[in-house]
């Protein structure tokens, strides 16, 4: 459990673009063997959700939000070696953002948590064209496909992606999640069989 004062210190640092202070906090937590999911949800996710809110309320600029995103990406890279085992895993997952979706942190966190639980996660990153995603699915032959959507306005792109994936791989298990659905809108997924909404990282861990 990450204490509120530590979270506040991290939030203050990330809002001020103080990468060094963030690095110190995360390094200390990793050295003290913090539970990876707690680190991801109680520090990275919570701070980025707060930054998203501040941006939506016009309290911070796009540039500051992007700076915080870049620092969080660095912190994820710092944490990743602590969760990846390198051993051969039985299950494979392909995780991607849709075309035009430039926010990739949520998807990467899901990929990391699955890696932590022994999955072989292939993370394709932001703004992945449908053709590239289909090609990767063809090569990897995953047990699960994860699609991340951070901005609700990109829902049509998600639907285009789901149309293509479900048409090419009708028996696929697909997880869809992201900040875009925080206020609802998951009914758009009902028409796709085998597609499930992933509410949180905790729910992911419960069901894998």
């Amino acid at each position: 459990m990450i204490k509120d004062e530590l979270y506040q210190a991290y939030l203050h640092a990330i809002l001020n673009g103080d990468r060094g202070a963030c690095l110190n906090i995360v390094t200390n937590l990793l050295e003290n063997k913090i539970n990876i999911r707690e680190l991801y949800t109680q520090l990275f996710q919570k701070s980025m959700y707060r930054i998203g809110e501040l941006w939506e309320m016009n309290k911070i600029s796009v540039a500051r939000e992007h700076l915080a995103t870049a620092i969080t990406e660095n912190m994820l890279s710092l944490s990743y070696p602590h969760l990846v085992s390198g051993s051969q895993s039985a299950k494979k997952v392909v995780i991607s953002c849709t075309a035009n979706e430039y926010h990739q942190i949520g998807g990467k966190m899901v990929a990391d948590i699955l890696e932590f639980h022994g999955w072989d996660a292939h993370f394709l990153g932001a703004n992945t064209p449908v053709d590239e995603l289909l090609q990767c699915i063809d090569e990897v032959k995953p047990d699960l496909i994860g699609l991340s959507l951070a901005i609700y306005f990109n829902l049509p792109a998600l639907e285009t992606t789901l149309d293509a994936v479900c048409s090419h791989y009708p028996n696929s298990d697909i997880l869809v999640g992201g900040h875009a659905f925080i206020c609802g809108g998951t009914s758009a997924l009902n028409k796709y069989s085998g597609t499930h909404y992933l509410e949180s990282l905790a729910q992911l861990e419960k069901n894998i």
């Binding site: 990406e73 994820l76 990743y80 070696p81 990846v84 990739q104």
Partner: peptide
Amino acid sequence: LLRANQELNNLTRSLQKKNAQLAH
């Protein structure tokens, strides 16, 4: 810059994964 940072972090992630696989 943001795009380059994303790409760099994704590449770092791939390398870290390969490194862990090689160590294993």
